[in-house]
Simulated assay, not measured.
Amino acid sequence: MNTNGTITTTIENKIATLTFSHPASNSFPSNQLQALTNEINALSHNDLVTTIVLKSEGEGAFCAGASFDELLQVNDMDTGKAFFSGFANVINAMRCCKKVIIGRIHGKAVGGGVGLASACDYVFATTNASIKLSEIAIGIGPFVIEPAVSRKIGKSAMAEMTLAPTEWKSAQWAFDHKLYAQLFDTTAAMDEALQVFANQMASYNPEALYEFKKVLWEGTENWDALLYERAAISGKLVLSDFTKNALNAFKK
């Protein structure tokens, strides 16, 4: 088992399958966030790729968000901002990517994992893919991912999740609020439908897809600055005694 996590890509029939993994419920330390950002940027400029499928390994959680181990090591505002900027980098890379990104959400998504799902252009999910924004409970907040999540589900639903940080929202709830485009009872059924969909996408004019993606993301041009301003807020809050105590209690 790789204790540092992995980022792998396979390309077949113009479809790039981008897979991330980490032994801690597919959570993200900063090096893993940087590796994912770099890979998305590389695929954006790869002429052999028209479509990207973003997925994680295993049968458990899709993504548990930020690495609590690394959050506990943050001791100054610059380090804190740099860590949360990792999620800003990934979301901005997904937003600016020239390829349509299809999300494959097989299991639970927490915090930054919800942000990743929200930054995908089209999402397949199973009924196991419940979601939660737990940040307020540990003294911070989903500030960096909020623009991406609110863009998909709306401010009211975002507030409903954020202010009930211990409550799981079902995959059906996520589907009803347009975070998920298609929902399946089993992983096998999801993968079968996703493969058909991705093959269809790969047959379309990549220039038309890119132009449409730009339309989808209109109005987000300020995110190059906004997400890093949000990262600074989180970076400040993670230094609080409240957050340090909450993180240590959670680990125990």
Rank of each mutant, 00 (worst) to 15 (best):
H45N: 15
S130W: 04
Y180D: 01
D185K: 13
S44W: 06
S150Y: 02
V100N: 08
S118C: 09
L48H: 14
F242I: 13
K99S: 03
D224Q: 10
H106K: 12
S27C: 13
N13A: 11
L226P: 00
E12S: 14
K244F: 10
V114K: 00
N31E: 10
Y180G: 02
K99Q: 09
S118D: 03
H106L: 03
V144F: 10
C96K: 15
A159W: 05
T127L: 03
K213Q: 09
E167A: 13
A109P: 02
I15T: 10
V144P: 08
P29W: 05
D69K: 12
F212Q: 11
L216Q: 14
I101S: 05
N13T: 03
A42V: 04
G139S: 04
L239F: 11
A246D: 05
E146A: 15
A93H: 09
R151Q: 08
S150G: 01
A24G: 03
C96D: 15
V238A: 07
L216W: 08
N31K: 11
F250T: 10
C96Q: 13
L54Q: 10
N248I: 10
G5K: 11
N199C: 05
S21K: 12
N205L: 06
A109K: 06
A225G: 00
E221W: 01
D78E: 14
E218S: 15
E211T: 12
I136S: 09
S203L: 03
